[in-house]
Design a protein around this nucleic acid. Structure first.
Lengths: 406, 406
DNA sequence: ATTTATTTTCTCGACTGTCGAGAAAAAAGT
DNA sequence: ACTTTTTTCTCGACAGTCGAGAAAATAAAT
């Protein structure tokens, strides 16, 4: 159902527009805001005045005025207007970060994960304690943290902030909302890691001035395989999803996946899948859950030296990925694909198979293969996505609160 | 990029809301409009008055007033405010319809297709002539036709109104916009047929009061395989797409598809694919382009009587469909699936394989199989979709024109 | 030191829109 | 004829955007 509009909503939308343009371009003067948003100067005045009174924006010192004329007043997000916490859960570590409303990092630390421990209880306790440590170390009230943004690989229920299935905990669900509910007023965002990568890539490409950008996909290669899709919807907003790509059915080849199904993409293209093929382990057995990168490097070295089975394993991985991506573009549309993750270091070995797999579908033959780029620093992208999403969420919440607040 | 908002846009949105609620519920009185839209009574007055003056709405005779009190004034779309033409291109016939702005059918006829003729030229000429016939027979000016909505199976470029790939013309593209450009001012909409089915199903389910409806998929079974996905986006608007599902890669089994690729879903589940398997024709040959329904009925009969290879052919078709659908829900989300088309009459033979294919993916095992319903009358759904989309388009255009028109 | 030019921000009135309340209209019941 | 009931219509208050021009604040020129 469509919803009704009103003059108040107009203000809300335009306020959001102002905040968004400050996010995109950094602190700006009145004139620039007007230009970037298309709003009339008078409107910008009204909005900035209101946001300034609400302690959301603050005036920044302008740099030595190069030109003559009345000096510009630079507006920027007020640092103390709120804080955000990001939690990046990866296979071996958990990284906690604290940042302010302007997006500047305040504190960050990592904690090692205990692989042997597959139950969620100790993890949950460590998680709550780490958050406590984060705020107390920086002398921030829990109440000032407006958003906690958590990311993990696996299948996520974003609405309920519940981890449905993850490589680490399997089907043991983790309910983050319930964990923080009692003591934290912050909004909990739980995102698939590769979703954040896709989000960050979309923003990067938009900033780089890519024309007619409709959608971007991110593919993460590692122990597990992740896919994120970011699409600009009709209203120009970015809507991102993390499909269950790694465990999408690839082929009825009987390769057992650690999820319990057979023939998942990950069973061919995840690290353990590559290792299994390279060592000719029977496809119905699952090798060690976590394959050390050094081990993968060894296989890659052999493959590059011409060892047949190792080469074959990587090519099969590429094939599974290419076929999966061909299905993705068949079901969505052609879009640029960014490949990240530790697996990118084997891209030379994967590429041929990947292209072969892509070329097998009509969509690709008709409209050409999607442009593929390799962006190794996954962690950076994940953090970029965390910040972008959390700050946008804060902006929206603050604006929404303003209206019905007083 | 977000776009700025203004008071005029508010009026536009709310006018659209009023027109949409009239579409959904039929002619309504002031009070009902206010209730359905959530707009204040005064606002409804302002909007209806404006639309009435613009000859978009008209007052209808109210039925014998059952209750006392001031009699209601019923508003409805004015029939003559514009006309729409729908063209349904199927494998054997082309159906042309003419309807008015209120959505009532004025004229309809069908023309047989010549199968032997695979060039687009004669088709294009017949198409233009049929449209001419449609308006002249009903004494309507070409200029009064505001939308021509065309549907076909195959791959479509909705933005350019160009048929990119179709079962009939293959890669020979048909540019409908160019065909009508010189003489028609109407907006040309070109949609994949199953996209319209998905749209219609979404509206039906919404009307039936299904709760938490996020998305609906329609799967059309016949000579070719089509899929439409309708999703309600954040703003509550319905956005529908027609992925290239029939030619999505299913399996590297070498089955040649008529599109030239190998292993397409259609190569297993299209009528010719089923026939090929049933008759044990080598998978690298393509049987007759159009398999008569009578022929398929015969195979189905044999299958139901226990003939192994026929049974197997249908089960393989189901398997390919089920695996494809499992990929669809992996890449999108779980959603109700409506199956239509002539192939539904063999659903009993397909079902087992379909369920088997679906169950092979983690997504389905984790979140359950999507609810599947069978809705045989495909043509009805296509027309429903045509009308819904064309009328919505007209509503939007009329409202948009109002603002910058005077 | 004062004036002028320039650039930016701020302010005012006109306009468009929504909303709530209550007046006006129009029919049925008494 | 009067009352009741239901619905539509109208009015004034309020919220928002916009264009134009006033005001502010600085550098350059005199």
């Amino acid at each position: 159902m469509l919803t009704k509009s009103s003059t108040e909503l107009v203000r809300q939308q335009n306020s959001a527009l102002v905040l968004a343009s400050l996010r995109r371009h950094g602190p700006l003067a009145h004139t620039d805001i007007s230009q970037h948003t298309g709003l009339a100067s008078a409107t910008v005045s009204a909005i900035t005045a209101e946001l300034e009174k609400a302690d959301v924006l603050e005036r920044r010192e302008q740099q030595a005025s190069a030109s003559r004329g009345r000096p510009r007043v630079i507006f920027g997000q007020r640092r103390g207007a709120g804080y955000l916490v990001t939690v990046r859960i990866s296979s071996d570590i958990v990284q906690y970060s604290l940042a302010d409303y302007a997006g500047t990092l305040i504190d960050r630390f990592e904690e090692a994960r205990n692989h042997a421990d597959t139950s969620t209880r100790p993890f949950a306790e460590a998680f709550v304690a780490a958050l406590e440590k984060l705020v107390s170390r920086s002398r921030i009230e829990r109440g000032q943290v407006l958003v906690v943004s958590i990311s993990s690989k696996g299948l996520v229920d974003p609405a309920l902030a519940r981890l449905v299935w993850s490589p680490v905990f399997g089907a043991q669900q983790v309910d983050f909302a319930a964990l923080l509910e009692p003591h934290w007023r912050a909004k909990i965002l739980l995102s698939n890691e590769t979703l954040l990568v896709a989000h960050a890539m979309a923003l990067r490409m938009e900033k780089a001035g890519v024309k007619n950008l409709q959608a971007v996909a991110a593919l993460s290669l590692g122990h597990s395989i992740g896919l994120g899709i970011a699409r600009f919807d009709r209203s120009g907003e970015l809507s991102v999803t993390a499909p269950n790509f790694g465990h999408m059915l690839n082929s009825s080849d009987g390769k057992l996946c650690r999820c319990g199904s057979q023939g998942c993409i990950e069973a061919s293209a995840g690290f353990y899948g590559i290792l299994r093929t390279a060592f000719e382990v029977p496809p119905d057995t699952i090798p060690a859950k976590f394959v050390p990168l050094a081990e993968m490097d060894k296989i890659a070295l052999r493959a590059r030296q011409g060892h047949r089975m190792s080469e074959y394993a990587f090519r099969q991985a590429g094939l599974a990925l290419g076929q999966g991506l061909s299905r993705m573009v068949s079901l969505y549309e052609n879009m640029p694909i960014a490949i990240t993750g530790p697996g990118t270091r084997y891209f030379d070995l994967i590429q041929r198979g990947l292209e072969e797999g892509l070329a097998q579908s009509q969509q690709v033959r008709l409209l050409g293969a999607p442009p593929i780029s390799v962006v190794p620093e996954e962690a950076t992208l994940v953090l970029e996505g965390h910040f972008a999403r959390a700050l946008a969420e804060m902006d929206h919440d603050i604006i929404a609160a303003r209206t019905d607040g007083d």
